[in-house]
């Protein structure tokens, strides 16, 4: 609570930490659910044109980080800049792939309809989806290798195919920054490859992609950068430098039980007894 006496970051410093060119820069962001802090004091600037894995144990706040960037959950403090501006001004340049479990796959739409949803904002209020929009959606489906399944109802797709449809929906937005929440969760081998190919293609075209990732074994193979997260930012940087045993120990446990304990105390103290 004491903001003044000893360490007050100067105004110019904040500006320095939000370079206009960076696809995503987060300064001092804290997010709390029901007053329980989930992620604390995140400071991060994403590099341009890199594939970044967000890695951390369960409950480390990986999804929360993405949701907070997208303004889906309120931030307790801190700022987020997307290409140097606030998120809602740069919304068109951000593509989002939510977790597959977050929707009802029994919903009466086919794969093509879902992909076309990525264009809705571009189409605008009240205007219908036209043939050229469907054409664009079809191309995106083709890119993820799902063109044959365009007319299938989404519940008839396998998990991997559903994930590809979600990916195509993000592709169709033609964004410069992509945020993906566990795109590799529960997918088959060929989907995993297809997704990796797409991610690499995006990188080739200079796009930045942040991916919440679970599988530690494939991090070095798939990603250039990692962001190790466990309620706090543990480390960030090129995979070869940062993805070390020591850092992983810091992320996944070791002597950090205290952090948990303190978080617990704070919850108990703040949200009643």
């Amino acid at each position: 609570m004491i903001r003044s006496v000893l360490t007050q970051p100067s105004r110019s410093k904040i500006e320095n930490e939000h370079p206009a060119s960076a696809p995503l820069s987060i300064h001092d962001m804290t997010v709390a659910y029901h007053r329980k802090p989930v992620i604390w004091d995140i400071d991060y600037t994403a590099p341009i044109g890199k594939l970044v894995a967000i890695v951390g144990p369960n409950g480390a706040g990986k999804s929360t980080l993405i949701n907070a960037v997208l303004d889906l959950v309120p931030k307790a403090s801190g700022e987020v800049r997307v290409f140097g501006e606030e998120y809602h001004k740069q919304r068109n340049r951000v593509g989002y792939v939510p977790q597959r479990e977050s929707v009802d796959w029994d919903f009466p739409v086919n794969a093509l309809n879902v992909v076309a949803m990525g264009l809705y904002r571009k189409i605008g209020w009240c205007l219908p989806v036209l043939r050229r929009h469907r054409q664009t959606a079809m191309e995106a489906l083709d890119r993820v290798g799902m063109a044959d399944y365009a007319k299938r109802q989404i519940s008839q797709l396998s998990g991997g195919q559903q994930q590809r449809v979600f990916l195509a929906r993000a592709l169709v937005q033609d964004a410069d920054l992509y945020l993906m929440d566990e795109p590799f969760a529960g997918v088959d081998a060929s989907t995993e490859r297809a997704i990796v190919d797409i991610l690499r293609e995006l990188r080739e075209r200079g796009k930045t992609t942040l991916v919440v990732h679970h599988d530690l074994q494939t991090v070095t193979e798939y990603f250039d950068h990692v962001l190790l997260l466990n309620m706090r930012l543990v480390a960030t940087g090129p995979t070869s430098e940062v993805f070390t045993r020591e850092n992983l120990r810091k992320t996944y446990g070791g002597k950090l039980a205290l952090l948990d304990q303190v978080g617990h105390k704070m919850t108990m103290g703040e949200s009643g007894r």
Binding site: L70, D71, D104, Y120, W125
Partner: peptide, 15 residues
């Protein structure tokens, strides 16, 4: 269009 997106995936709609 808007209602269908809202019903299918309100998180994506919000984003």
């Amino acid at each position: 269009k808007e209602f269908s997106l809202l019903s299918f995936d309100d998180k994506f709609a919000a984003a």
